[in-house]
Write a protein that binds this DNA or RNA. Structure first.
Length: 483
RNA sequence: GGCGGCGUACCCAAGCGGUAAGGGAGAGGUCUGCAAAAUCUUUAUGCGCCGGUUCGAAUCCGGCCGCCGCCUCCA
């Protein structure tokens, strides 16, 4: 298995520290607002990586944190005139609502910064003792100059950073690059007791404390969005390695951004869509398929048109599934006739290998999904021959089993056909109920029997205008939501 | 200014040294009372431009053009 490591800038063979086990720490969210599509991408990417590693046979310890204390949370609390911890509790709930919809599993442990103050204080103490940090009136800073390898993750040179520093300079710091490990709290702000007075942790230190607590001083994979490389992960790395004297993380994995009109989707630019907004118009699987259709490190342009294209491809999956289910429901008198099943048999045989090869190459979900659709085409081709008999039935059944095995790992295409249709009816806001649609179909069927094709066609047209397409099949007429 | 990335058909997107996956859209055929779905054919002798290396290059090297990201909170 190969993984692209931000630290080396290359794909590397993945060798876990402990045989058969993998420790992953993914930076979660700061809970002060609803999540947007960019958060969804990161969550889905690492969820998929975790799922694949489990599938590949590893025991995975997956840690995803909540930053539940920070300036933005405090600001939000003031704006809404509620307690800071009400803000974080509320948005943790909202986070789960979104992630459950998107099929993002809970992590093994989901630690919160505020529940690890003791561990954080211990590490800061240690850093002061080792001469890597200094206390100025209750604020403790990490002294970047003392950590000689600073910049190795983000490939930055300390001197360049200093000269180009746009950072608001705190005169008390020895260098503008020094960052806060502990911040003294002002009146009315949340605070915890510490050897340096009442205060709260800086942003980066929580991840050091929590990852080490749950995964050890050196662990396998640390992930997050590409915007966390600097300064967050660079600082985390510096303080962690300064503290332990050991390598902190073996593989740094960063996902690319979501863009809108080529620009990064972000809060500050205001060009973002919340997950919730998108899910009003599209099924969660559509968003998940969309996000996994390109490689996790590539920038991904987000637009309605893109989602509609993904929606169409998801629909292709489900219409094939429907077709397969109808086929399997048929009586299967053993047919003697030979059908050409070589290509289908071959494709079934190669899919698992293709999938594993793709995912082993830096988690190439785009190829994995492509392989799924190759099998979809072969299934349709096979079914076009109208095969009969137990052998045909078994072959088709087997193809679905293989397909589901792969899709389970990606956590896509997990619905039933009726669930998919209902979801489409809801997201497309169709004006008709299922009963109304079936009434129309019955009326049309009567007309068809009477060869009154004018009436039949006009009913077809009426439904189509409302977003329903009819499909006449032997024995019955079924309907589908128009994409 | 420093560092990094990207540019593949009408749209999206894989491929990263061996002769262009997959999805969507369009056109035509098969099937159908008509449709839809499915399927077939078709849409890049071509992978931003110009050179170079190589038996062979989207793929490696050099230069140029265009776009974007990080350097400040950010997934």
């Amino acid at each position: 298995m190969k993984i692209f490591n931000t630290l080396s800038g290359k794909k590397e063979d993945f060798i876990p520290i402990r045989n058969g086990r993998v420790g992953i720490y993914a930076c979660g969210v700061t809970v002060y607002d609803l999540c947007h599509v960019g958060h969804a991408r990161s969550a889905i990417v690492f969820d998929t990586i975790k799922r694949y590693l489990s599938y590949a046979g590893y025991h995975v310890d997956f840690i995803r944190n909540f930053t539940d204390i920070d300036d933005k949370i405090i600001k939000r609390a003031k704006e809404e005139a509620i307690a800071w911890d009400e803000v974080s509790a509320k948005y943790i709930d909202e986070y789960y609502r979104d992630m459950d919809m998107l099929g993002v599993d809970r992590a093994t442990v989901e630690p919160k910064a505020t529940e690890h103050i003791a561990e954080i204080i211990d590490i800061i103490k240690g850093l002061i003792e080792k001469g890597y940090a200094y206390n100025i009136n209750g604020d403790v800073f990490f002294e970047v100059e003392r950590f000689k390898e600073y910049g190795k993750l983000s490939k930055k040179v300390i001197e360049d950073l200093e000269s180009g520093a746009r950072v608001e300079v705190d005169d008390r710091k020895k260098s503008p690059l020094d960052f806060a490990l502990w911040k003294s709290s002002k009146e009315g702000e949340p605070m915890w007791e510490s050897p340096w007075g009442y205060g709260r942790p800086g942003w980066h230190i929580e991840c050091t404390a929590m990852s080490m607590k749950y995964l050890g001083e050196t662990f396998d994979i640390h992930g997050g969005g590409a915007d966390l490389v600097f300064p967050h992960h660079e600082n985390e790395l510096a303080q962690s390695e300064a503290y332990t004297g050991k390598p902190f993380v073996n593989y740094w994995v960063h996902n690319g951004f979501i863009t809108i009109d080529k620009e990064k989707m972000s809060k500050s630019l205001g060009n973002f869509f919340t997950i919730r907004e998108i899910l009003q118009e599209f099924d969660p699987e559509v968003l998940r398929v969309f996000l996994l259709s390109s490689h996790y490190r590539s920038p991904l342009e987000f637009s309605r048109q893109q989602l509609e294209q993904s929606e169409a491809s998801v629909d292709r999956y489900y219409s094939t599934l429907e077709r397969v289910e109808e086929f399997l429901r048929l009586d299967q008198p053993d047919g003697k006739k030979h059908y050409d099943d070589k290509k289908l048999t071959d494709t079934i045989a190669t899919l698992p290998t293709q999938f594993v090869d793709a995912m082993n190459d830096d988690f190439n979900t785009a190829i994995a999904i492509g392989a799924v659709f190759e099998l979809i085409r072969e299934i349709n081709r096979y079914l076009d021959q109208k095969p009969r008999g137990q052998q045909a039935s078994d072959l088709v059944q087997r193809s679905m089993t293989v397909l589901q095995e792969v899709c389970n790992v990606l956590n896509i295409f997990q619905k039933t056909v009726p669930q998919w249709n209902h979801s489409l009816m809801a997201t497309k806001k169709l004006p008709l109920t299922i009963n109304q649609i079936e009434d129309f179909i019955a009326k049309r069927q009567k007309a068809r029997v009477e060869k009154d094709f004018v009436t039949a066609d006009s009913i077809r047209k009426t439904l189509e205008v409302s977003g329903i397409l009819l499909e006449d099949k032997p024995g019955k007429t079924s309907w589908r939501v128009k994409i």
